[in-house]
């Protein structure tokens, strides 16, 4: 099955960012395809490379970046990102700032768009 992920919450503050990540990992492990993770609302903060969590904790930004390197597109909505100061300068590697049109394309293309958030 082809999945698209919509993540609507920021890292650490809300479990959605973790659950979304684990969902993607589990889906890939089972042989499913995950086309993209689209970051919306405070979800765009997941793509902030300036985050610096304690060393004994997971690094959420790095996790997304690694997924991006493995072929899952990590996309941050430009309107939501601009509002929150997420620009190219602070963007994690292997992520892209893009428009909501791309989310629409993903929603049309995939078998399931799965939302993580409140």
């Amino acid at each position: 099955m082809r999945f698209g992920i919509l993540l609507k919450e920021g890292p650490y503050n809300h479990q959605a960012a973790d659950t979304a990540y684990h969902f993607v990992q589990a889906a890939l492990k089972r042989g499913h395809e995950v086309e993209a993770v689209f970051l919306y609302n405070d979800g765009v903060y997941n793509a902030n490379k300036l985050m610096s969590p304690p060393q004994d904790d997971r690094h959420i930004g790095k996790r997304w970046s690694e997924l991006g390197a493995n072929g899952v597109e990590i996309l941050a909505c430009i309107a939501a990102a601009k509002r929150r100061g997420i620009t190219e300068e602070v963007l994690i590697e292997n992520a892209t700032i893009t428009g909501l049109g791309q989310l629409t394309d993903i929603a049309i293309r995939v078998d399931r768009l799965v939302t993580f958030g409140d």
């Binding site: 609507k8 919306y40 609302n41 309107a79 939501a80 428009g99 909501l100 049109g101 989310l103 629409t104 394309d105 929603a107 049309i108 409140d118």
Partner: peptide
């Protein structure tokens, strides 16, 4: 919260895609 506000922004963009 910003959810309905940004939600409406999303709706307006998606509306241009003839779905």
């Amino acid at each position: 919260t910003i959810y309905p506000y940004e939600g409406l922004e999303m709706v307006l963009i998606m509306a241009a895609y003839e779905q």
